[in-house]
Amino acid sequence: RTAFSSEQLARLKREFNENRYLTERRRQQLSSELGLNEAQIKIWFQNKRA
Rank of each mutant, 00 (worst) to 15 (best):
S6D: 13
R26L: 06
K48A: 15
L34H: 01
S32A: 14
L9D: 05
R27G: 10
F16N: 01
E15W: 03
Q40V: 15
T2F: 13
R14H: 11
R14Y: 10
F16G: 01
I41S: 00
L12K: 00
E38R: 04
E15I: 05
S5D: 06
S32W: 11
F4T: 03
L9W: 05
K13V: 15
T23N: 09
E33G: 02
E33N: 03
R20T: 06
E24H: 11
N37T: 15
N19A: 04
Q46L: 09
Q29R: 09
S5G: 05
S5C: 04
A3D: 12
R20N: 09
S5H: 04
E18C: 12
L22N: 02
A3R: 13
E15H: 03
R11F: 05
Q8D: 05
R26E: 06
Q29M: 10
K42L: 14
R11G: 06
F16C: 03
E33M: 05
Q28N: 07
A39F: 12
G35Y: 04
R14C: 12
S6P: 14
I43C: 12
A50N: 11
L30E: 00
T23A: 04
T2V: 12
E15P: 00
L34G: 00
Q28H: 09
K42G: 10
T2K: 10
Q29Y: 07
N47L: 13
L36C: 06
T2G: 13
I41D: 01
T23C: 05
L34R: 00
N47W: 15
L30D: 00
I43H: 11
F16P: 00
K42H: 15
E15V: 05
K42I: 14
L12H: 00
R11V: 11
S6G: 08
T23M: 03
W44C: 02
K13L: 15
T2D: 13
G35A: 06
T2I: 12
S32P: 01
T23D: 11
R11T: 07
E7V: 08
K13G: 08
R14T: 10
A39I: 13
E18H: 09
R20A: 12
S31H: 02
Y21E: 07
N47V: 11
I41V: 08
S31D: 00
T2Y: 12
R1L: 14
R27N: 08
L34C: 02
L22H: 01
Q8E: 03
L30G: 00
S31V: 07
E15M: 04
W44Q: 00
Q8G: 02
L36V: 10
L9R: 06
E24Y: 08
N17M: 11
F4D: 02
L34Q: 01
T23F: 02
L36Q: 01
K48S: 10
Q40A: 14
R14I: 09
E38S: 07
Q40M: 12
S32K: 15
Q46F: 10
Y21T: 09
R27Y: 12
T23Q: 04
E7I: 07
R49P: 03
F45D: 01
I43F: 10
L36W: 02
L12E: 00
F45C: 02
R14W: 09
A3H: 13
Q40P: 02
S5N: 10
Q29A: 11
Q40C: 13
K13Q: 15
A39G: 09
N37L: 12
Q46K: 12
R26Y: 06
E18F: 08
R27Q: 12
S31T: 05
R11W: 05
F16A: 02
T23Y: 03
R27W: 09
R1S: 13
N17R: 11
T2Q: 13
E15C: 04
R11A: 12
L12W: 02
R25A: 14
Q28R: 12
A50G: 07
R26M: 08
A39Y: 13
R14V: 11
L12V: 01
A3I: 12
A50W: 09
N17W: 07
K42M: 15
N17G: 08
I43G: 08
L30R: 00
A50M: 12
K13A: 13
E24N: 12
E24K: 15
Y21S: 05
L30F: 01
R26D: 04
E33H: 03
S32I: 14
R20W: 08
N19P: 02
L9G: 01
E38M: 06
E7C: 08
